[in-house]
């Protein structure tokens, strides 16, 4: 394997982690939006706040990792995608800033109207951002982003059947992941009713997302024949794995095996991303720009690979500590430990 291939795998792994972890945080915003009125939705929103709060910034950094990896290792591909798809990417950027800011602002607020305002901003941007990220993925996957600066259709490249399908699937996926993750969080916090509520939501989104994905096969066949051929050819085992993992996590949800559900739910989503990559490999962008064509010079690839390996040595233990720290201990039932001091 070449350094370029290794770096592509690492970038795709980063993208997968962003989709799973960052995606679940976006899904938290989705359920926050649908939690209902202030009183009725309080318990759900509190659970979402406690689950998302400590980790969302770290989860978000995976996106920056992916961007930087692509612009360093595949600079022409990055420039082509960013210039042609500048409209949805600008919307994604604004969605990201609105989501992060509103979530932080809501945490610092106490009045109901402030909570509603910032909570609304958090919820709305949590739905729009993954949608537009999905349209970007759909544009690239359906071969609508040619190599070159702003060489593609500035609107049609992301507003087309495959892009819209990918956008809707992205929103559905984030909601599904969040429901699966929150179910376990709720049970660990001793909130059985809440766990049951998110279990129902997880089953519902699994069914809806699954139906959209099945229907999407027909959209891809007419709209993105090359991708369709890849997904039903070389990548078929991965697609089947995704479907099985999706069905498996529904069965596990029904059986209330929430810990295992997390793994199968993540597997179902990850398999979609890797299926896409395998279906398209080695072409990165049309007409025929492959991984080796687009790769940076070897000195850059080697320096980046060394940086990533050394960086992972620092990163992985830190991340594991972050997750175990907030997964191990139950959510504090009476969090006001320590007297509040007045200014």
């Amino acid at each position: 394997m070449t350094a370029a291939q290794w770096l592509l795998i690492l970038s795709w792994a980063g993208l997968t982690l962003y989709a799973l972890l960052g995606g679940a945080d976006f899904g938290g915003g989705f359920w926050d939006a649908l939690a209902g009125g202030a009183r009725r939705g309080l318990a759900q929103r509190r659970l979402i706040e406690h689950s998302v709060g400590p980790v969302w910034e770290a989860n978000h950094v995976w996106l920056i990792f992916v961007i930087v990896m692509f612009w360093t290792c595949f600079p022409g591909v990055f420039a082509s995608v960013a210039s042609t798809l500048y409209i949805p990417l600008t919307l994604v950027a604004l969605g990201i800033i609105a989501r992060g800011a509103a979530f932080a602002f809501r945490k610092a607020s106490t009045e109901l109207w402030q909570l509603r305002l910032f909570g609304g901003g958090f919820a709305l941007s949590s739905v729009l951002t993954p949608f537009f990220l999905g349209t970007v993925a759909g544009g690239v996957a359906s071969g609508r982003v040619p190599y070159g600066l702003a060489k593609g259709d500035l609107v049609g490249s992301w507003w087309n059947p495959t892009s819209i399908l990918a956008g809707v699937l992205a929103v559905g996926t984030t909601a599904y992941l969040a429901a699966a993750f929150l179910t376990a969080d709720a049970r660990r916090g001793g909130q059985i009713q809440l766990a049951d509520a998110f279990r129902r939501r997880g089953l519902g989104t699994a069914v809806v997302t699954g139906i959209i994905a099945l229907g999407g096969i027909f959209i891809l066949r007419s709209d993105a024949p090359a991708l369709y051929a890849g997904l039903t050819g070389r990548a078929l085992p991965i697609v089947v794995l995704s479907a099985l993992a999706g069905l498996g996590s529904m069965a596990l949800l029904i059986a209330r095996r929430y810990g295992l559900t997390r793994i199968t739910a993540a597997l179902a989503v990850a398999a979609v991303l890797w299926g896409w990559a395998i279906a398209q490999y080695p072409v990165m962008l049309p007409p025929h720009v492959t991984v080796s064509d687009a790769a940076a010079t070897p000195a850059v690839l080697h320096a980046t690979l060394a940086t990533v390996i050394v960086g992972m040595v620092l990163l992985v233990p830190s991340l594991l500590w972050l997750f175990t720290l907030f997964q191990r201990t139950p959510q504090p039932a009476q969090p006001n430990n320590g007297p509040a001091v007045t200014p």
């Binding site: 920056i64 420039a79 600008t90």
Partner: peptide
């Protein structure tokens, strides 16, 4: 807010200055 406003910048490097990134990104 700093984290997300910094992310915007990495988007803008590509969205606004793809000529820079295509040639010198590496």
């Amino acid at each position: 807010v700093g984290a997300v406003s910094g992310t915007i910048l990495s988007f803008e490097m590509g969205v606004l200055w793809p000529g820079l990134m295509a040639t010198y990104g590496q």
